[in-house]
Amino acid sequence: MLVGRGALSFKTFEVSGKNPTPSHERLLERLEQFAFAGIDAQEEGAVHGWVAPDHLFDGDFASPKVFRGQYALFALRIDTKKVPGPVLAAHTALAIAAACEADGVEKLPAKQKRDLKREVKRQLLAETPPVQRAYGVFWNVRARKVFLQSTSKAVVEAFRALFERAFELNLEPHSPGMRAAQFARERGLTQALREARPLALYTSDRALAAV
């Protein structure tokens, strides 16, 4: 099971928008529509999509599997494919040397070098397997809260963009600053927040040089 596996680490989001508590039917329909579709053999970059909660290749969004207790469970799959720069440079150098030898010349024209590099990259991409990752998601639909089992900035950004597109909803990540601003606004304490300065606990004259 991808969702809830091991010790939990997660980022929390508030859901808002026109219909922030979608029905089970709509939720399943949108998961299907934005399901992970794979990465092209010769494509470089990252591809995102939803998978069902069991494992990386689980494309079966069956209702009993997705809806557990008060949660909707699914996962964000991200496949990335990239040819490492030094590997591309080494293979390109070999291809250029082979072409020079075949043509009986010392140097190749710039255009021919570029074409060779493009062809080498195409071949290497076809041979490079994608890095496949998936991150559990649990959504308390009624409470309008979504939890993503990753705190990595890149994963959070990819998740937020896909979630907002797939469900046509807005996601606001929990952040201490935003919560403070909201807290202050609701209680008429915005001026106090504006005037807050970082806490200085300095007693440096007493700090122990010996420790």
């Binding site: 997660f10 980022k11 207790g69 469970l73 952040s175």
Partner: peptide, 30 residues
């Protein structure tokens, strides 16, 4: 960020309840 990580829940008094989904219980504890 105030993000939570490596959350482990310990409940020595927890009893097995056939009606309860352990995964949903774990997520609810988080």
């Amino acid at each position: 960020t105030l993000d939570l990580s490596s959350v482990k829940v310990v409940d020595p008094d927890a009893e097995e309840d056939e009606d309860e989904d352990p995964l949903a219980t774990k997520l609810a504890a988080g």
